[in-house]
């Protein structure tokens, strides 16, 4: 139940970011200066934390999505759905452990 709620919440959040992200990337068509100005705001610490949250949302949505597919198509999926939720949580922690320190280093590590 909660994984279902989290799947919806992360999905909507990612969707709205996607709309913004296409807009900001479109500035490459305006001029290098305007693109660099806007993408520069992605490099400040607050946005850096936002990006960490965004990546966390994507990673959960991705792994839980695979779990949903397995529940739907794998004969034993429904029986192992709870076990698979813990696998999702485990993979999420592993992936974030690989991403977070490096990303925070880029954001807070100075020049």
């Amino acid at each position: 139940m909660w994984s279902w709620v989290a799947h919806r919440v992360t999905g909507v959040a990612i969707f709205f970011f996607l709309l913004v992200h296409v807009l900001d990337t479109s500035l490459v068509r305006v001029s290098p200066e305007s693109y660099n100005d806007v993408i520069g705001t992605y490099k400040n610490p607050i946005m850096g934390l936002g990006e960490a949250g965004l990546v966390a949302a994507i990673v959960f949505h991705a792994f839980n999505g695979i779990r949903i597919i397995l529940v739907d198509f794998w004969a034993k999926g429904p029986r192992y759905q709870r076990t698979m939720l813990w696998i999702v949580v485990g993979l999420f922690v592993l992936t974030m452990a690989g991403f977070l320190p490096r990303h925070l280093m880029h954001v807070f590590g100075g020049e």
Binding site: Y35, I39, Y42, K43, G98, R102, H106, V107
Partner: peptide, 15 residues
């Protein structure tokens, strides 16, 4: 975000 200098390296030249 992970390879190279991550978000710090993204600019017009990168894209």
């Amino acid at each position: 975000l992970w390879a190279g200098d991550g978000v710090k390296a993204i600019d017009f030249g990168f894209v």
